[in-house]
């Protein structure tokens, strides 16, 4: 694997809506694209044993996660005729209601963009070494587990 093609996907804190709109705007010159599909993960204020989750604190095994993300990206590009794919995942503390995952796929037609986007999201959830610590309003916490 070419080291230079392993891209960073992590960003400290929440992913701001303006980053997402800028990302969309950058594609206006790529006129071969006819469809974008976007998934946004948002930190949910779960209530567990009567206590509100106020934030999730994300950590990762960064070197391994970036290599794994590279593998996922290559596999999805090999399977679908995508024009491009952009991924951002938060690290550190993200408050409830804020965006923590951004997956953006683009292609000539909608089905490819939608299916590829879903596949990337599922693979990120299942295969990326990232851990979320759910922080409650009273500063206690528990470790999240993906279902």
């Amino acid at each position: 694997m070419a080291e230079k093609s392993v891209k960073n996907i992590f960003t400290q804190g929440a992913i701001e809506p303006v980053f997402i709109s800028d990302s969309i705007a950058k594609h206006s010159s790529k006129t071969n694209i006819g469809a974008h599909s976007i998934f946004l993960g948002q930190v949910r204020k779960d209530v567990i044993d009567g206590k509100d989750v106020v934030a999730i604190d994300y950590t990762t095994y960064e070197e391994m996660a970036l290599e794994k993300m590279h593998e996922i990206r290559e596999a999805v590009f090999a399977k679908y005729p995508l024009a491009c794919m952009h991924i951002r995942h938060s690290l550190g503390k993200v408050d409830a209601g804020k965006i923590c995952l951004f997956v953006f796929t683009s292609s000539a037609h909608r089905k490819v963009a939608i299916e590829a986007c879903e596949e990337v999201v599922e693979k990120i959830k299942a295969e990326l070494p990232v851990w979320g610590k759910e922080i409650f309003e009273d500063d206690t916490h528990q470790w999240k587990e993906n279902k």
Binding site: G41, Y61, A126, L128, P129, V130, W131, G132, N146
Partner: peptide, 10 residues
């Protein structure tokens, strides 16, 4: 060697 608990990203 890395010890990896169940993943919970996204």
């Amino acid at each position: 060697v890395a010890l990896l608990p169940p993943f919970s990203g996204g």
